[in-house]
Design a binder for these strands. Structure first.
Lengths: 344, 344
DNA sequence: CTGTTAGCGCATTCAT
DNA sequence: ATGAATGCGCTAACAG
């Protein structure tokens, strides 16, 4: 029965007027702060309901000096993992009353937008592949709470990532155990921290056997690059008997070209990837790969940022989440002992 | 040389003080509004730079009565398409100075969050699969500008979707042309507007040939459902010679099970999907499917919402973007018509 | 328990 | 061309 004065949304004054109370009481009721009589509470609730009142966030933010929002900076959203990451993040944030404002850098001029972003959130989570180091420094100098994802540790800065080196080492060792001797790492370690870690693990496995670690094949982590490399290998006189690829895109593309070219996988050559994209379980042979807990990574990042914003933790933490080796036929070493791949 | 008073970020007052000018002039310079002398402009720019000043968004929003932010409500982010959609959206938004606040519903209690969201953005874009109709009505009653994605038209409401019925009809007709006669539509038309349209197109193609349109197989659009259905079909005495699946997940899972069960695709049975996920081009045979312009869809939705917010267009528009049929071997009708045998 | 009041930081009249 | 003053809507002292 409320006669909303106009099309404009109701303010706290409208509610107060309708309830015959002061805005202070209205605020107390709605925020659940301070002592309020039952009668007052009922009147306010009723009035707010009738007016369909929701506090304007900008005003509230200005008053409480907090946005209750997180900024999330991602390099991309094309693959499946960033989507999962974002989902995990958003879920945690929603459960804790935080909005998430997303930014995709994608070779844009993010520097400017970043300052902008910082002025409407309480803190920012940055994926390591999304920004250059200096941009992160800018943020920190501006005292903006920052949490890094998949980024080399920065002093005094929280970070969250999934384990790479040890998994890569285990994977590589497994290939060696099964008789492979000329392995090639595919993907440029310089393209991201994670990839550099994967190459490090790869190298470590070889060193443990006192084998020389070959230079990585420094290509971008794309299907195109994988196909090109495979084409090159097909024409070579001497070729590796195993490709440890930095991600599934590379591996899938290479796998396809190699087989088209007449090589048998895994008999002539084994191929492994990273990420466990959907296609990995639909190609044949199934692609051996490593699964990262992307959603948990996102949720954890959100939590860490929140802790830092609220100041409930002083020391920086660097979390590392475990990954899972997913063995399929492309590596020629189906498990007798390890976990079985889950199929659709 | 600026002595920032404290760790707190600089305000417009700090800038004004450092520049020896009033906050009004500072605001004029920074917003580019109103006449300002060259000298003043230079002093302000210098001061703002030294103080690393960025206007606080909450304060600005409160003053200008606008958030310069969009809300985007998606059902999910798992598949590849929502990621692309979001990317297209964010790109447009960033180019036009709008932030995007994302919400993933995923069977959550979004009703409450939705009102929250509405109080910190200028308008909301909702994916049809994300919300019930009543929730959208709530928003409209609250005068919140709303744009729908992949949702049946609502009076007075902008909407954006990609074409479904005609593509489905063309695809189905193609299968019929190549001798298929017992087609089955897989996927519940009730699960989304798009799927209902796809089934409508499927039915139309059959009707055009004066064939009865069989009831759809009303299953969810998941890999699990696809696998289950295929398993069922393998055991049936009489089975369809073609599956028109509502999405790629269904199709891929079905394809895999059918082949595992000894059926030849496309010879014994053809299979088609929808969305063109990455796996579609890595399975063998390659999956025939339909590609939607997800990124453009996102960008267009952002634009439409912006137009509605700024009020530069009164009448509602309902845009329909064209899709693209992607022919691969799983439907047995390659463009060149040459059905090349695959290697084992 | 409730009301009055003073900001929060910024854009914007209205004077000058 | 510039400055002083007002208000955006809300929260949080501070009085009563």
């Amino acid at each position: 029965m409320a006669s909303r004065p106009t099309g404009r949304p109701a303010t706290i004054y409208d509610v107060a007027a309708l309830a015959n109370l002061s805005i202070a009481t209205v605020s107390r009721v709605l925020q659940g702060t301070g002592p309020v009589s039952e009668k007052a509470r009922a009147r306010v609730d009723q009035a707010a309901y009738e007016l369909n009142y929701v506090p304007l966030r900008a005003a509230r933010s200005l008053a409480v000096q907090r946005h209750e929002a997180h900024g999330l900076v991602l390099p991309d959203l094309a693959g499946p993992f960033y989507g999962d990451l974002l989902m995990g993040y958003e879920r945690w944030a929603a459960e804790h009353g935080q909005s998430v404002i997303i930014t995709v850098t994608q070779g844009m001029d993010y520097r400017r937008n970043l300052r902008e972003l910082a002025s409407r959130v309480d803190g920012i989570v940055v994926h390591g592949n999304a920004l250059e180091r200096t941009a992160v420094q800018d943020l920190r100098r501006a005292k903006v709470p920052v949490v890094l994802i998949a980024h080399p540790p920065v002093t005094g800065c929280d970070s969250v990532r999934s384990e790479s080196a040890t998994s890569a080492e285990r994977l590589t060792t497994r290939l060696l155990d099964h008789g492979r001797s000329r392995l090639l790492f595919v993907g440029d370690p310089a393209s991201s921290y994670d990839v550099s870690e994967r190459y490090a693990g790869f190298s470590r496995a070889l060193s443990s056997r006192e084998l020389p670690a070959p230079e990585p094949e420094r290509v971008p982590l794309t299907e195109q690059a994988g196909a090109a490399l495979a084409t090159k290998l097909l024409q070579a006189t001497t070729r590796p008997d195993g490709l440890v690829c930095a991600n599934d895109e590379l591996a899938l593309a290479a796998l396809k070209i190699l087989r088209t070219g007449g090589l048998a996988v895994p008999d002539d050559i084994v191929v492994t990837g990273w990420d466990d994209v959907m296609a990995a379980r639909y190609v044949s042979p199934g692609l051996t790969t490593v699964r990262q807990p992307m959603a948990e990574l996102g949720g954890l990042a959100a939590q860490r940022l929140h802790e830092r914003i609220t100041g409930e933790r002083a020391r920086a933490r660097n979390d590392v989440l475990a990954t899972q080796l997913v063995l399929r036929d492309s590596c020629g070493t189906r498990p007798g002992e390890t976990q079985t791949p889950r199929n659709g």
